[in-house]
Design a protein around this nucleic acid. Structure first.
Length: 494
RNA sequence: GGCGCUAUCGUCUAGGGGUUAGGACGGAAGAUUCUCAAUCUUCAAACCCGGGUUCGAUUCCCGGUAGCGCUACCA
């Protein structure tokens, strides 16, 4: 799971990707992972994967699998791996330390069951004075008596109390303590909250840079408070602009469907290199005119200074039309670029399982012959199924005989051309040059243009007008199949 | 509502007190080719609004507007 760099050569720079396994790996998370990875690799640091699974209610194994599946596909790897749920003792120890210093207090208010008041966009809940100001004696007595309580941070809210930090992307940040609510550290069941667990782990794992989504920018004030209350210097922060849908709303599976899941891109036939490249261009720029960049180039160019501050739109089509049109056109274009850059053998090897998966029997040798004919014609790996279908099937799907009629020609011309082709092709070697010469000569004899000669043959063997170059196609198809299909076409045309 | 963040072509972005505001994707047109694709050429397309500061603002400042985020014993 890790790349070749040896861990001993790494310095103190440590970054982490900390997804919570409550859903599939989504593209925004993937980008956060990539930026962390790039930053670590660029600066010789350590990349850590930490599953932030403190929300027992919402965690699922399926989600854990989806995250690993997605990350595995990206192929970037990481150096250390942790699971937050296994570090509960550490979290509670930090909560205890903060409590001992008088910087947290018990809140015996029963937990809110519904989230009815959340939707009301109303009141500014900051703290409950009765709980915050409760005497030690009463607090201890009630705790000893077994009354459940949540542990809340005692946010310093006197006038002039300002919490501040410097964000590598958003600059100087400050907020009055009076505007920060007394957030929970421990739930009444004793489980740590995200804020506590995250800070405790970041401190314990000596994370030096927290690179994460901008949705945490406001939370960072709380985190700074926790770090300081526990006696740690906060790490450096770098918040990333969010990835949003074309309408500006947050990406969500419920609203936007599978386009937000990493595995959707994998299954649609994206190359991880292209996907990574595409994601890097959302919210980050190399500050020059490069668009297509290899992993190597990205690693060398990446810097926090190149990250910008405005949300970036993933420009997918909301109502999914064709598979390829649902994705951001730039992602598709980049993928086509990377496909064209692949060696035939490499591409052919990647295409084979897709073709076989669709139920076709194809040998690696045959696939290697077909690949050069479609490499420039497919944008997604899965396009092989529509671009090269006629190579795989025994019998062509039905097509309209009118398709056989060439430009500026008629049915009679189509028939004439096909019969001529059948005769000529019967004793010509099925190689590019001989086919070229024979068919052009035939066209001349017939008094038709080369294009008028080729088009009916193309439709006869491919079943459609748009296809790879004819001679190469016939060469791969072979004499037997070609003549059989031309024979069928003659029957249709006649 | 409170607090925070943001604002350049349709989208991703570069730039920056005086520029023909640059590139990429996508779109349009053309060249080329046996169709398609690829490739090449060309074109259309942007500084949210209002005030300041300034000789001069798209750029700096303030306000507005809009969008986003946080405001849970979710993360």
């Amino acid at each position: 799971m890790s790349d070749s760099q040896s861990s001993s050569s790494r310095g103190n720079l440590r970054v982490r990707f900390a997804p919570s396994p409550t859903g599939f790996l989504h593209v925004g998370s993937a980008r956060t992972f990539i930026f962390n990875w790039l930053y670590a690799r660029r600066n010789g640091g350590t990349m850590i994967l930490r599953l932030d699974d403190t929300d027992v209610e919402r965690n699922t194994d399926a989600s854990v699998n989806s995250i690993f599946e997605g990350l595995k596909w990206l192929g970037l790897g990481w150096d250390e791996e942790y699971k937050q749920s296994e570090r509960g003792a550490l979290h509670r120890r930090m909560a205890e330390a903060i409590f001992q210093r008088g910087l947290a207090y018990r809140d015996f208010t029963p937990a809110h069951t519904g989230d009815s008041e959340k939707s009301g966009a109303q009141g500014t809940w900051l703290f409950n004075p009765g709980m915050r100001e409760m005497s030690h004696e009463e607090s201890d007595r009630r705790a000893v008596a077994g009354e459940p309580f949540a542990l809340r941070f005692r946010v310093p809210r006197e006038a002039g109390q300002i919490v501040r930090f410097t964000d590598a992307v958003y600059g100087e940040q400050m907020k009055a303590g009076a505007d920060i609510e007394d957030f929970a550290l421990l739930r009444s069941d004793g489980m740590p909250t995200y804020h506590l667990a995250s800070c405790a782990d970041d401190a314990d794992l000596r994370i030096s840079h927290i690179i994460r989504g901008q949705d945490h920018l406001s939370n960072t004030f709380k985190h700074v408070l926790i770090f300081e209350a526990a006696g740690y210097t906060p790490p450096q922060f770098a918040h990333l602009p969010l990835l949003v849908a074309p309408d500006g709303s947050k990406l969500s599976k419920r609203r936007h469907g599978p386009v937000v899941s990493v595995t959707t891109y994998r299954d649609a036939g994206f190359l991880p290199e292209a996907f990574i490249n595409f994601l890097c261009l959302l919210g980050w720029s190399p500050k020059d005119d490069r668009t297509k960049m290899s992993r190597q180039e990205l690693t060398e160019s990446f810097s926090l200074e190149g990250i910008n501050r405005a949300n970036a739109v993933v420009n997918f089509k909301e109502p999914a039309t064709t598979p390829e049109e649902t994705f951001d056109p730039k992602a598709v274009w980049l993928n086509a670029e990377f496909i064209r850059g692949l060696a035939i053998e490499d591409l052919s090897r990647q295409l084979l399982p897709i073709v076989r998966g669709a139920g076709f029997n194809v040998t690696p040798e045959k696939m290697a012959q077909i690949t050069p004919l479609i490499r420039e014609r497919i944008k997604l790996l899965s396009d092989v199924l529509t671009a090269a279908d006629f190579f795989f099937v025994d019998k062509l799907p039905p097509y309209d005989p009118a398709e056989l009629i060439p430009q500026k020609g008629d049915a009679a011309m189509a028939l004439k051309v096909l019969q001529k082709a059948q005769a000529v092709l019967a004793d010509v070697e099925f190689k590019h040059d001989p086919l070229d010469h024979a068919l052009r000569a035939a066209a001349q004899e017939l008094g038709v243009k080369a294009g008028q000669m080729f088009q009916p043959i193309r439709v006869a063997v491919c079943g459609r007008k748009n296809a790879p170059p004819l001679f190469e196609t016939l060469e791969v198809l072979g004499k037997e199949v070609t003549l059989a299909r031309i024979g069928e076409a003659i029957n249709k045309a006649g």
